[in-house]
Amino acid sequence: MKLKMMTSFLNSDLILIENTLEETIQAESLLLRQASLHTLQAGGKRIRPVFVLLAAKFGNYDIHVVKNAAVSLELIHMASLVHDDVIDDAELRRGKPTIKSKWDNRIAMYTGDYILALSLEVMTSIEKPKAHKILANTIVEVCVGEIQQIRDKYRFDQTMRDYFRRIKRKTALLIAVSCQLGAISADASEEISRKLYWFGYYVGMSYQIIDDILDFTSTEKELGKPAGSDLFQGNITAPVLYAMADSHLKEKIVRINEHSSRKDLDEVIETIKNSGAIEKSLDLSDRYLKKALAILDGLPQNRAKKTLKDIAKFIGKRKF
């Protein structure tokens, strides 16, 4: 089942969020408005708003309140993507030109800063200090994670623990907080908010591990970028770490750097794929998924719970 079908009962609310996202971007500068809308219209799974809405179903669900958290989180995600494309010097995202490529780095910086400010302005509609403390802390942590990712590039002596800490900040936190803020904005109990946070955290970890696996197993067409890009850029992910447990493989892998040829990279990718590292990584992702599903067991029975379960399973099986 596709994600869209799983969340079909939220369709009218998701449309409202989509419309609100578009209405919110009302920059006076035509260029800034075009650039911001370009990012928005590039699409995306809107997984964060989905998590916000589903989590809010465990409290007093009022879409007109909850949508602010959903819109804010999606805008934060968008702003980070715009800046990430400058960081990665990326020409395409989801098959479409990035802002930095359609315009330039400078416009991408202004657009990202504008969208981030917009997201915080929207978030202030939720007048709950706790929600802001959580979100602010998350934004800082995500940045720290990205800085660490740059620091750790081509650092082949890093451990699985370093990797977990990095993907937590890179991906899991924002998904965890999407669930938590959904619950908080709907006045769900402290216990439920906490459980939903951990559900999001485990799902997020699993999601990123799968993403890191797909970088090895998918085609360039599916990924929208050459396979093995992570390793080529020096990002040491779960498959690489598992493969490096074998000292012979490690010797080959540590030779990869930004000047490596495509042929050398392809050879190493094949070696990693045949080493059992992909299976071990899938197993790791699966363990996180199981933890996520176990958390759901402790939540009240409702349609949102079933959907969260379906989404978790979908993430575990996704192919790209």
């Binding site: 800046h83 400058v86 910086m109 200090p129 403390k133 602010a136 802390n137 934004i139 800082v140 720290v144």
Partner: peptide, 18 residues
């Protein structure tokens, strides 16, 4: 790192006010 520094300091101001 220049991109990330700006984002990090933005996060810090928000955290401070929050």
């Amino acid at each position: 790192l220049t991109v990330l520094a700006g984002d990090y300091y933005s996060g810090l101001y928000y955290k401070h006010l929050a």
